[in-house]
Amino acid sequence: MKKLLFVVLPLLALAVGVGFLVKATRNTTGSTTKPVGAVLDSKGCLECHGQKTLVKMTSQGEVPIYVEGQVLAASTHRYLDCTACHSSNLHQGKQLTMQSEVERCGSCHTYERDLYRGSVHGQALDQGSEDIATCTSCHSTGGSVHGVAAVLDLEATTFRRNIASTCARCHANESIKAKYGMELEVYESYQHSVHGKAMELASNDPRKLNKATCSDCHGSHDAKPVDAPGSRVGSISALAETCARCHRGADENYAKGFVGHKEASRSYFPLVYYGERFFFLFTAAVVFFGVLLVSFEGYRWLVGGVRRDHDDDGKGGS
């Protein structure tokens, strides 16, 4: 009986361990299969608009007016009728403009709309920018404005882990950066910062995604330029407060050590700049020395010692 226990218990432990590993792998790397629910569509719009070939004739020619039923069905708004956002008078409906989209979303999401209107994005929209982000720029998945996803959806562009790459769609886009004079490599530098690394490698448990991402320091609906009034990162004192929201007790001295998105240089964080160079050279030199010895030793070992013919002590060592 006892002997049996010795066999069964380790096996049990092994099984639990393997199960744990499998579960852990699933947790983080498995992709989600979303329940594709029905779409409300009580007015039957998709009867026609669900057909790929549907177009309307305008002065600018044919405009597709097809709506992807699949995307809609996966969206968090799948139980809203089309008329909730488009006109309630059938066939007086219009494609939303950037401005009317903000108002449509804002008719329910008023708090977010107000924040957005005051943000750098909302203000640029009011100035007529056509490149600027509106609601669906950040909240839609699946390549369609209709795919608005809930923020806890693993594939949502606004799921915490995905926020940085969503911002990067514009902020790391070379032509947009050039057009608006955005010089810093914000995405690249974030990805290699402690915060970006931790976020990328965290498990999908939302409680474990408590690593800082773009919106935590720069705002989301109320995103602001660094130097704008009310910015959370505009001055050392504001930055210290922002750091302290996660790093309890962080003060201005702590905030002064934040290199941010700018690369260290001779004048900006020189200690980091020279430190990087020093450690690189140092590592290279030591490893070079080691590899040299290994290669020589290996070579002599394989090829044998030299002048073996007039020396009986040819092959190393003895």
Binding site: G249, D251, N253, Y254, K256, G257, F258, E276, F279, T283
Partner: peptide, 25 residues
């Protein structure tokens, strides 16, 4: 946070790169 109570703030990024590179070595 505790370290920057008695070290300058830049100690953190320097520690970060030193740690990272020394580990590779």
């Amino acid at each position: 946070v505790a370290a920057t109570k008695f070290l300058p703030g830049v100690a953190v990024p320097v520690a970060f790169l030193a740690h990272s590179d020394e580990a590779v070595l």
